[in-house]
């Protein structure tokens, strides 16, 4: 019996409600969209439904919502200081959205929305456009002083300014690729190791070795839970750090 491995299949978009197409672009309500709205629903459940009683002594889920709030509030405050408060909803939404979507991906047979580069790039592009938009709105051309390190001799600026510009442009790319690649690679690795278990079990005497990839799969699953939470945190923290540049440009 031949078992074929297809670790890529899990990332395919499935159209639930086809809506036609514009040129090459297929328009459809996909499972990806469904998961995104489900994530919004779960986040609303935690942060809105569970807090509706406004209990002074919180229940479990209200407590969870408060922990998330205080955690992101601390992160934003540490990165941006007092003026960063207005970006709290953005960072909080990003963190919860990425966290819940990452964790959805850990449910067997579920789809990991964040393993699609366009999604993570969309979020990263949102962050960078807010940084640039707010920076220019607030500081005007002074915002571009971000690219000019202070206290550096003029000739060196010729080298440093392009480096700063490139590093700034690479931010949305690194921000989106980091999350996307972590999720993609993690899910592929889990799939492949789990597949090894099946393959070894079907390989006669070799089946005695099948517990090895099984343990690896279990360990990887635990690691992926860590990665799911950690990448959401990294995304939120980097967002806060980039927003700090919009608030306080110049080195």
């Amino acid at each position: 019996m031949a078992v074929t491995i297809d670790p890529i299949h899990q990332f395919e978009l499935k159209s639930l409600v086809p809506l036609g197409h514009i040129g090459h672009q297929q328009l459809a309500f996909t499972q990806s969209a469904l998961y995104m709205f489900a994530a919004v629903g779960v986040i609303a459940l935690i942060t809105i439904v569970a807090t509706s009683s406004r209990a002074v002594v919180p229940g479990r889920i209200q407590s969870l919502a408060e922990i998330f709030y205080e955690f992101i509030d601390d992160t934003v405050h540490q990165a941006t200081g007092d003026q960063g408060k207005k970006f709290m909803p953005l960072v909080f939404s990003l963190f919860m959205f990425v966290l819940v979507l990452n964790l959805f991906g850990m449910i067997p047979y579920a789809f990991a929305v964040t393993s699609h580069l366009i999604i993570t790039f969309g979020l990263a592009a949102l962050v960078i456009s807010v940084v640039v938009g707010y920076g220019v709105y607030k500081h005007g051309t002074h915002f571009f002083g971000l690219f000019v390190p202070s206290g550096v001799p003029k000739p060196l600026l010729a080298i440093l300014v392009p480096i700063e510009v490139i590093s700034f442009i690479s931010r949305p790319i690194s921000l989106s690729v980091r999350l996307f690649a972590n999720m993609l690679a993690g899910h592929i690795a889990m799939k492949i190791f789990a597949f090894f278990v099946v393959q070894l079990l079907l390989a006669g005497a070799w089946s005695v070795l099948s517990p090895l990839p099984l343990f690896l799969t279990i360990a990887l699953t635990a690691l992926e839970f860590l990665v799911a939470a950690l990448q959401a945190y990294v995304f939120a923290t980097l967002t806060a750090i980039y927003l700090n540049d919009a608030l306080h440009p110049g080195h």
Binding site: L13, F29, M36, G122
Partner: peptide, 22 residues
Amino acid sequence: SGFLAQIIWLALAFGLLYYLMD
């Protein structure tokens, strides 16, 4: 070929989330 739809759904879902959170 799915990028446009995904971006649109992302914008809608994240916009809704941002609105609810804010």
